[in-house]
Design a protein around this nucleic acid. Structure first.
Length: 292
DNA sequence: AGCCAGGCATCAG
DNA sequence: CTGATGCATGGC
């Protein structure tokens, strides 16, 4: 399922499945994921190729995928809770898009950079420019069969890149200084993502918003998709519109107010609620009738 | 041509 | 606290 709701760039779509190369336990693993069976009885086929042909990292890779797609979440229970709280239109949306996975980035740094990158951007452009960055600055990995891929660049690597150069290569515009500054903070240890991960939602959010270039929306993206804190409900233009219509009678509401409303209404399922609100908003836009 | 996209920093009231 | 404006870039 491709909802576009993630803090990792889209995986490459190949005839054999979705392709990604990530380091596990220090060793690069090529991972092909394919869903077999339908939405009702889905199962995943994984084809893993470790760089040195060892078996060590394969277990880690499987766990990585399990975490990425949050396969341990009990969707039925979550749907039940959402629909008990529910507004009729939200319930219908949950039912219609049932089976969507909330993504949890395998690497917090990837989640951080991609979240900052997504601000005031389009999903399409965002994916493309992040891919360009990876292909330009990422470490090159060559497998035994001769195939080669690029990893997402490390904080150390990005912290050394010049802003103008980075902007010229990736076309990410004014976000370049935010992205590289964040990479420097992480590399120098001034922003400890693992420490933030251990914090509860609200304090963690405070810490993230202090970083220049990270506001409420980006912080929530990072906390939800990057760290898996499901209290977070990122409110973008789409969620803002649909929530304004559903819960505020088209009245004036700030994004922050909507975010707080969703947290109070859905608790630690706010992230899941947001997932479906986003789908509803996008779907409504496609069929035309969307007011502001 | 002008508005918009998974916003944010900044500044004015 | 709320409201305007500039910021890069590309799609439509």
């Amino acid at each position: 399922v491709k909802s576009g709701q993630t803090s990792e760039p889209e995986w490459e779509e190949t005839p054999e499945g979705f392709l990604d190369v990530t380091r596990y336990n220090g060793e690069a693993v090529k991972c092909l994921v394919r869903q077999v069976g339908g939405t009702r009885e889905p199962s995943l086929q994984l084809n893993l190729v470790a760089m040195r042909g060892a078996h060590g990292p394969e277990y880690e890779a499987v766990e990585g995928i399990r975490r990425l797609l949050r396969l341990d979440d009990d969707l039925e229970r979550i749907y039940h809770h959402l629909t008990v709280i529910g507004d009729a239109e939200v319930n219908a949306t949950v039912h219609r898009f049932a089976g969507l996975r909330l993504m949890h980035s395998r690497d917090p740094f990837v989640g951080l950079i991609c979240s900052i990158w997504s601000q005031n951007n389009s999903v399409r452009l965002w994916n493309r420019s992040v891919r360009i960055m990876r292909n330009h600055f990422g470490e090159r990995i060559r497998f035994r069969d001769g195939s080669a891929y690029r990893l997402f660049p490390s904080a150390r690597r990005l912290s050394k890149v010049n802003v103008q150069h980075f902007k010229a290569v990736t076309r990410c515009g004014y976000r370049a200084k935010y992205i590289l500054q964040a990479a420097r903070l992480v590399h120098r240890g001034d922003l400890d993502l693992n420490a933030v991960d251990k914090m509860s939602y609200l304090p963690a959010r405070e810490v993230m918003i202090e970083v220049v270039g990270i506001g409420p929306k980006v912080a929530d993206c990072f906390l939800l998709y990057g760290l898996g804190k499901t209290d977070a409900a990122p409110v973008d233009v789409w969620v803002h519109r649909v929530a304004k219509r559903l819960f505020f009678q088209h009245g004036k509401v700030t994004r922050e107010r909507v975010a707080r409303f969703l947290r109070e209404r859905y608790g630690n399922l706010a992230g899941y609620a947001q997932l479906y609100l986003f789908c509803l908003a996008r779907e409504t836009a496609l069929t035309g009738a969307l007011d502001r």
